[in-house]
Simulated assay, not measured.
Amino acid sequence: MGRLGSLKRRLRRFWPGRAGPRPVILMYHRVADLPYDPWQLAVTPAHFEAQLEEIRRTRTPLDLATFVARLAAGTLPRDAVALSFDDGYVDNLRAAEPRLAAAGIPATLFLTTSAVGRPEPFWWDELAHLILDRTDGADLDLTVAAEPCRLRFAEPEPPDRDRRGWRAWEAARTRREAGYQALWRLIRDAPPSERERAMTVLRTALGGAGPARADERAMTAEEVRGMARRGTFAIGGHTVSHPALPTLAPAAQRREIADGKLAAEALAGRPVEGFAYPYGAMDESARRAVAESGFAWACSTVGTAVSGRRFERYALPRIAAPDGDGGALARALAAG
């Protein structure tokens, strides 16, 4: 047994995937049925229920703070899983929270604080409505953060009529998809004030998308407070306005991160430990600002399992949950 035990230890050292499951942090954004989903942000309620059952059956679910504490202590189970949600969509409250509570599985919500209580959709949803949902053509020249962009397309082309399978990181199939991709990149990388200006220009020129639909708005302050009181969700930081942090100067990074933490703590009524980088975008300055703002750990969007030997406390990887049943989730976990 001594030689066999030594061999097993060597196998676990050099081929950890052969020794069973590995700890994983799952990343969700929405639990909703959507007509199309260009950034693959949603898991349907039925699929979410099936995934929770798969987690209960095969994994040890932990809240993220406990997951990180046990990771640091070297006591994290190999089958541990923690669930996280980004942004603060109201369907996290209506569709995700009751299912999580029924399953007895905790989660963490990384909250974009300036979105709380706003009538407008998140800017990426509003941009999709203004361009991808538009039935008329458009011919518009605009500048976003000193970068010129021309938005030009005619009436919908055949692929525009069924966009369920298209993802925005894939090649554009139509001129309006190409316009949406180009504007999305420019607006994502613009400073918050320039992003707001660009969206105002687009609303005026294209007729406006109107208030967020009831199923896609951000939560209100009272809804966030109630969620925090009930305890199924812990609240984490996700900046004030969801910028791509490496595009900002260090001082602006610190304001977004620190002010977001203060606002999240005011809503949660307790200290906020964890942070998630918007779009997963980070640089050394942003990581330093997260630590100096008092966060104990932070999550990226690098889609791998967590390594117990070589983990970075301020860049923990997360695997995006697929929109599929428990089997699809099991395959995603195994691939990580």
Results as ranks from 00 to 15, higher is better:
residue 215 D to P: 06
residue 206 L to Q: 00
residue 275 F to L: 12
residue 280 G to T: 03
residue 269 G to T: 02
residue 247 T to D: 14
residue 237 G to E: 13
residue 245 L to G: 12
residue 314 Y to G: 07
residue 250 P to N: 08
residue 279 Y to I: 10
residue 243 P to M: 07
residue 245 L to C: 12
residue 281 A to K: 04
residue 224 V to Y: 10
residue 217 R to A: 15
residue 223 E to M: 12
residue 247 T to G: 07
residue 244 A to G: 07
residue 273 E to P: 03
residue 238 H to M: 13
residue 282 M to I: 05
residue 260 G to T: 04
residue 292 E to T: 01
residue 252 A to H: 01
residue 248 L to V: 06
residue 297 W to Q: 11
residue 235 I to Q: 14
residue 323 D to I: 08
residue 317 P to C: 02
residue 274 G to R: 01
residue 266 A to S: 07
residue 240 V to M: 15
residue 275 F to R: 00
residue 259 D to G: 05
residue 235 I to H: 10
residue 210 G to A: 04
residue 258 A to Y: 03
residue 286 A to L: 08
residue 317 P to M: 03
residue 325 D to G: 12
residue 291 A to V: 09
residue 298 A to H: 10
residue 319 I to F: 12
residue 289 A to T: 03
residue 206 L to N: 00
residue 297 W to M: 11
residue 246 P to E: 02
residue 313 R to K: 04
residue 298 A to Q: 12
residue 270 R to T: 06
residue 310 R to W: 13
residue 261 K to S: 13
residue 271 P to C: 01
residue 315 A to E: 11
residue 252 A to E: 14
residue 212 A to T: 00
residue 325 D to K: 04
residue 264 A to N: 05
residue 255 R to M: 11
residue 221 A to G: 15
residue 301 T to N: 13
residue 323 D to K: 02
residue 283 D to W: 09
residue 210 G to Q: 01
residue 269 G to W: 11
residue 255 R to L: 11
residue 255 R to K: 04
residue 236 G to M: 11
residue 239 T to G: 09
residue 270 R to F: 11
residue 281 A to V: 07
residue 322 P to D: 03
residue 284 E to W: 06
residue 218 A to E: 15
residue 292 E to D: 15
residue 292 E to P: 07
residue 314 Y to Q: 09
residue 267 L to R: 02
residue 215 D to L: 12
residue 265 E to L: 07
residue 217 R to Y: 13
residue 209 A to G: 06
residue 235 I to N: 13
residue 297 W to H: 15
residue 264 A to P: 11
residue 266 A to W: 05
residue 311 F to W: 14
residue 319 I to V: 15
residue 221 A to R: 08
residue 284 E to L: 14
residue 207 G to R: 00
residue 288 R to F: 09
residue 233 F to P: 11
residue 302 V to N: 13
residue 320 A to P: 14
residue 263 A to Y: 03
residue 209 A to V: 00
